[in-house]
Amino acid sequence: MYGGYQGRYEPKTFVALYDDLDPATQALDVLREMGIEDRFIQVQSGVPWRPDLLGRPARPSAVSKYALIGAFLGFLSAIALYYGTPLLYPLYVGGQPLLSVPPGFIVIFELTMLGMLIASFLGVFFESLLPPVVGKRVYHPEVSDGAIAIFFQVPGHLAERVKQALSQTGAIEIEPAEGTFL
């Protein structure tokens, strides 16, 4: 979008820090009013804020899909182990059939749950692209102290105007930030 511009039009990244939710949502409104789309804004916070409280677009997390896929894989491995392995080396015990249903439920349940849990766990990191492998990402350590950090990208020539508008909203600090959003 800004590809054709040179020099002063080059996008710059800033971070604005807020210590409370209200001024932060206000600031987000300001940014949107100034034409900065939501995708050029990233909010970091020390506690999870619901998107609707922040006034940000809500997207469902894909972790549930991971969970489902994981559960399915766990289920399949349970079937393979419980109904498959006895056929590889049939050994009979206690007058019981080689393949029986009720104890299978136990194995299936455990492995399904295990698959689901592992997949959900991994899903968090895949979906959030954690841990960072390449590149520096924007971050402000004040987030740990409860600050709400709003990162935004603006074309260089608009930077001053946006900063000014934000300073009206009660930002503790507005400073340039380095790194990608991701």
């Binding site: 050994l91 009979y92 015990v93 206690g94 007058g95 019981q96």
Partner: peptide, 15 residues
Amino acid sequence: NAPCEPVCPVFATLH
């Protein structure tokens, strides 16, 4: 129908 058999986790006792 040996009760000892099914409980062995490693098929050490079997029919």
